[in-house]
């Protein structure tokens, strides 16, 4: 309950940032909310079931692609919803075969799938003679930021609801032992598929919003594997055992990126990689686990 109130205060504070009159801060909040939404969505599948996806960029990219194709012909809210739906439908379509693959093979399969879709879209675009699409009329940054903040809130509430529901209990049983879960009545296949779809929907809308922010679509960027990598790193750094983990991870690394990305992008990636390795080896429960330890719980 305390967490919820704190969260709502943060959201309200962030929503008021445009009143500062500095678009830079509005942009930072946009980035923060974006990564929180993505990392939290990822956790709906990967933190709960242990199926680590290294391909969430594909949902983001699909959202962006659908959004750019529809922009101009329908209102912008509709393009976002369509992006989210497309990502969800894509997850539902590939979910059954993909989720039969386990452990490290699932990790590389998701990566490979994301890359496959990226190359297919690049091929389609170049066959259409397009080398990137511009969008000329976009909503003001405040509106985009508020939408992103809404998505982040939705993702956090969704992740919280999943973890505290029957659905979430079933997913953690799947993470621990799939066969045993099935034996005590958990419909493993259906639950995994639902989690997969749930974790794809919000990234679809996020991709659309991010596209409107940059007002430029290029498939190589929209499906950039660095997006997937950043999501995983944020979630693992923050800690996958709690809902606040991905939030903490996203905040920490977004701020780091604001510091380094624009001037020293390669150094930023090196720091990101080292941070990930360091956390896996030395802080497997993430920042969130550290906080608990310091607070003396567990």
């Amino acid at each position: 309950m305390k967490g919820l109130i704190l969260g709502l205060v943060c959201v309200a504070g962030a929503a008021a940032v445009p009143m500062l009159g500095n678009p830079y801060y509005t942009g930072v909040i946009f980035q923060l909310a974006m990564w929180i939404a993505l990392a939290q969505s990822w956790s709906m599948l990967s933190a709960t079931t242990g199926y680590l996806s290294l391909g969430h960029a594909v949902f983001y990219g699909i959202g962006a692609y659908v959004c750019v194709l529809l922009t101009g012909s329908v209102p912008f809210a509709v393009t976002l919803i369509a992006g989210a739906l497309a990502a969800g439908i894509f997850a539902a379509a590939i979910g059954l075969p993909v989720l039969r693959v386990r452990g490290p093979y699932f990790v590389i399969l998701t990566y490979g799938l994301s890359e496959l879709v990226r190359h297919v879209v690049m091929r389609i675009e170049s066959a259409l003679g397009s080398f990137g699409r511009m969008i000329f009329i976009v909503p003001p940054i405040e509106v985009l930021m508020w939408c992103m903040l809404g998505l982040a809130t939705l993702a956090c509430l969704g992740a919280w609801a999943i973890r505290h529901s029957t659905f979430g209990a079933g997913l953690s049983a799947i993470r621990e032992d799939e066969v045993a879960a099935e034996t005590v009545g958990v419909p493993v296949t259906r639950l995994k598929l639902l989690a997969f779809v749930a974790s794809a929907i919000i990234p679809g809308a996020v991709g659309g919003l991010a596209l409107l922010r940059t007002s430029y679509f290029e498939p190589g960027q929209a499906f950039d594997p660095v997006i997937s990598f950043t999501i995983v790193t944020m979630a693992l750094v923050g800690g996958t055992e709690t809902v606040r983990g991905p939030i903490l991870g996203a905040v920490a690394l977004t701020l780091l990126s604001e510091l380094l990305w624009s001037n020293l992008p390669q150094l930023y990636m090196v720091v990101l990689g080292s941070t990930l390795i360091g956390f896996i080896l030395f802080v497997p429960r993430g920042v969130s686990g550290l906080v608990d330890q310091i607070a003396g719980r567990r």
Partner: peptide, 11 residues
């Protein structure tokens, strides 16, 4: 280890 190797790759 797969994620770990990915970290190495990025570095």
């Amino acid at each position: 280890s797969l994620i770990l190797f990915y970290g190495i790759s990025v570095i």
